[in-house]
Write a protein that binds this DNA or RNA. Structure first.
Length: 203
DNA sequence: CCGGCGATGGTCT
DNA sequence: GACCATCGCCGGC
């Protein structure tokens, strides 16, 4: 029996709220001839749409960005540096055009490798899940979709936050805003942690 | 362990 | 024609 997808109302909220709420949720990836792959989200970034100078939606509904101006709960996938894909969940419809970038996850089931960091980074995540622009626009709230999102049976994780990664081109206002959220104690988080635990001296 | 850099192609001006 | 929400290799310490 498949887990029940999160409803559209989950995604139809402020993008920052959706981003935080996605931590600990499960991504279910189903493709013909491949076992179902399941991953638990541990790192995300909120992109606030038209006004956000770091967002692809900042120039309005261009061909690439127009999916973010549509209904929430759909998938936005783009190609970066000519070789990697990144996946986003559309969070808020209409003019706001919010989206949440999924930056890292923990493998739960269905992966060929045992590497616990194989999903640690937005490009690595899409590569391991086989997600490309071909999946762009799919409905994340249907159990029949090639990709959907569901609750996990787990307590709410401890959450930390920081500035977003790789957006130095955005103005001073936006590049410092703490719109990256991650599970504080997960080893699968990519990039820097706010307070890196120091290795205790070993005897 | 850390910083620098190149790969590679779509998107928008 | 410039830019880019990345990754992993390579060399220096």
């Amino acid at each position: 029996v498949k887990p029940t997808p999160l409803p559209r109302s989950f995604f139809s909220r402020d993008t920052e709220i959706v981003a935080r709420a996605l931590l600990g949720k499960l991504i279910l990836r189903q493709a013909p001839g491949v076992p179902v792959r399941i991953a638990r989200i541990v790192e995300v970034e909120a992109y606030l749409g038209l006004l956000d100078l770091a967002s692809h939606a900042r120039r309005g509904p261009t061909p690439r960005a127009k999916i973010m101006f549509g209904p929430p709960g759909h998938l936005y996938v783009y190609l970066i540096y000519g070789m990697y894909h990144c996946m986003n969940f559309v969070a808020k419809a209409g003019v706001e055009a919010g989206a949440v970038l999924i930056r890292a996850a923990e493998p739960v089931a269905g992966f060929a490798s045992a590497d616990h960091r194989q999903l640690s980074g937005p490009g690595k995540l899409c590569r391991a899940l086989g997600v490309t622009r071909a999946e762009g626009g799919v409905d994340l709230t249907s159990a029949d979709s090639p990709l959907y999102v569901a609750r996990d049976r787990a307590r709410a994780p401890r959450i930390a936050r920081s500035a977003r990664i790789g957006i130095d081109y955005a103005g001073d206002d936006w590049k410092h805003r703490e719109l990256r959220f991650y599970v504080a104690d997960s080893a699968a988080v990519s990039g820097p942690r706010r307070a890196r635990p120091r290795t205790p001296a070993t005897s």
